[in-house]
Design a protein around this nucleic acid. Structure first.
Lengths: 234, 234
DNA sequence: GTCTATAGCATGATAGAC
DNA sequence: GTCTATCATGCTATAGAC
């Protein structure tokens, strides 16, 4: 599935056409984990699931996922301990479902823009796309960034290879855009990842400085694409 | 205290003259927290403290600080529960001591290079200094990055203001170097912080790509100082 | 200074009523 | 589908012997 957007599209433009957004996610999760979720797909069930994730993000942000107790989660969602276990099979299931959303999303982004005409445009769009989707799903991205180290070895491997496959995609685009020194292209791709992640990890900082997501995306793209125009002309 | 180093100094050169290094840290901590530490300052006490921090880093890296139990810590250090409490007053003390080391260190770096002749050189040295010290004290920096959100409100405030004061120092140096658009200088300083933090947060990635700390520092400084030479000449 | 033993309580998960 | 009640376990922290 391709997304059709103008050059240097804004967050507002992106939000109107993105196929992945907060209101979709619960349905996506129910679809991908229906064995584990014993409750029926009623409206109240979807609303309860939404609350469970919302509360998990709030509580894990305060004390970490390991520090968050299921009793805290019950208090925050209004569910009882028994009721909660109708939605999750265990505490670990909860983190696995969240991680799955991010993996699914990160794999979709490069495809959205693979039809763009030039490597430079694909680079710009892919960077903006990742920044904007992480803005929309910020709590989900933040959770995986912070908690993936505490997950099981297999989950950690999946998280890392998911991150590397996106970074490798950026690296390939840099090479296509003229940066033929491959280690250099890889390093620049790693730098791009770091800049993008900072947007959702250190949000308090940008809020304090009143930087908008569009200003941020412009700044990252400018830094990432510096000197590539010159290579393109040569 | 100023450090005297050549332009574009390497990690090896930095390591020879840095006043803060792993072997100093335990003595520094004993000095700054002698009320809480009831054991005498014997050689065995210092060795036990060193083990306590080493084990804390290993275990917190696996399960998070909240997920790490003091029983795990005892097993890993070889101390008993009672023995451990001779070194720490509580589990929270442990994280507070670690955070204190990073605050102390981050405040020292800009001073080390404040005697450099030009703003561009101060920028380059300050960036390298931060990268190299975070290489030396990587587990300490990593711990504070990951765990500061789970600490008490006052600890979190201290951690954030400590990070912002370093970022503001970078921002001032950018302005001095000719980047007179202040919001732009602040944004570039934030980007520098993100790049530097990536070095100790996503170490697995750079290890995988076999990027040395000197190569990394060169790459960050190049990106950070791009276009500043031109401004300087004008 | 370091140990063993234990107090006192919170946790993840489940059983069974309705 | 959701509740209350309960289980077995594991937790931080301390008391007291040596």
């Amino acid at each position: 599935m391709y997304l059709t957007l103008p050059d240097r599209f804004t967050f507002a433009q992106f939000k109107q056409i993105t196929p992945i957004e907060p209101s979709n996610l619960v349905a996506l999760i129910v679809e991908r984990h229906d064995q584990r979720i014993t409750v029926k797909r009623s409206a109240v069930a979807q609303e309860n699931l939404r609350k469970i994730f919302e509360s998990t993000f709030r509580l894990a942000n305060k004390v970490g996922f390991a520090g968050m107790t299921l009793r805290d989660l019950c208090r925050d969602t209004g569910l009882s301990m028994g009721g909660l276990y109708g939605y999750i099979g265990s505490k670990d299931d909860l983190s696995a479902m969240i991680e799955d959303v991010i993996r699914f999303t990160s794999e979709a982004i490069p495809i959205w823009f693979s039809a763009q005409s030039s490597a430079l445009k694909r680079l710009d769009s892919t960077l903006r796309g990742h920044i904007f989707i992480s803005e929309l799903l910020r709590p989900w991205f933040y959770f995986v960034f912070m908690e993936s180290r505490t997950l099981s070895a297999s989950q950690k491997t999946i998280a890392r290879s998911s991150e590397m496959s996106f970074q490798d995609e950026l690296s390939r685009l840099f090479v296509e855009a003229g940066l033929t020194d491959i280690p250099n292209a890889q390093l620049r791709a790693a730098h791009c990842m770091a800049l993008i992640q900072d947007w959702y990890v250190k949000r308090w900082k940008y809020q304090q400085q009143q930087v908008s997501v569009d200003t941020f995306a412009d700044s990252v793209c400018r830094l990432a694409l510096l000197n590539l125009d010159a290579l393109q002309d040569a």
